[in-house]
Simulated assay, not measured.
Amino acid sequence: MSHDADVVLITGCSTGFGKELAEAALSSGLRVIATARRPESMTSLSEKGAKTMKLDVTASPEELRQFASDAISIFGRVDYLINNAGFLQGGAVEENSHEENLAQLNTNFFGVINLTNAFLPDWRARKSGTIVNISSQGSMICVAGAGIYCAGKAALDAISDTWARELASFNIRCVSIQPGSFRTAVAESANTKIAAKKIEGYDSAHEWIDGFNKASGTQPGDPAVAAKKIIELISKKGELPMRLPIGDDAYENAKAFYEGRLKEIEAWKGYSTGMGFVDK
Results as ranks from 00 to 15, higher is better:
G76F: 05
H3Q: 15
L262A: 15
S135W: 06
T52A: 04
T52G: 09
G111D: 07
D70N: 14
M42K: 07
K19W: 08
S27T: 14
L105C: 06
E20P: 00
R65D: 01
T218H: 12
Y258V: 10
I148F: 09
S181M: 10
D79V: 10
Q89W: 06
M242F: 12
I131Q: 01
E20K: 12
F87P: 07
A187H: 10
D161G: 12
A195G: 05
A151Y: 06
E94H: 01
P223M: 10
F110I: 02
K236H: 12
A92W: 14
A155G: 04
S69H: 09
Y271C: 12
G201R: 02
T184I: 05
N117W: 00
Y258I: 05
M242T: 15
A215W: 03
N108G: 12
L120F: 00
P121S: 08
S139P: 03
S14A: 14
F182E: 08
I231Y: 07
S181L: 11
P241M: 04
D70M: 00
A151M: 11
D222M: 12
A256E: 12
I230K: 05
P61F: 01
G221D: 11
S128H: 12
T116H: 02
P61D: 05
K255I: 10
F67R: 04
S136T: 07
M275C: 03
N117D: 04
K153D: 06
K280F: 07
E40W: 03
K127P: 00
I194S: 08
H98I: 08
S28F: 02
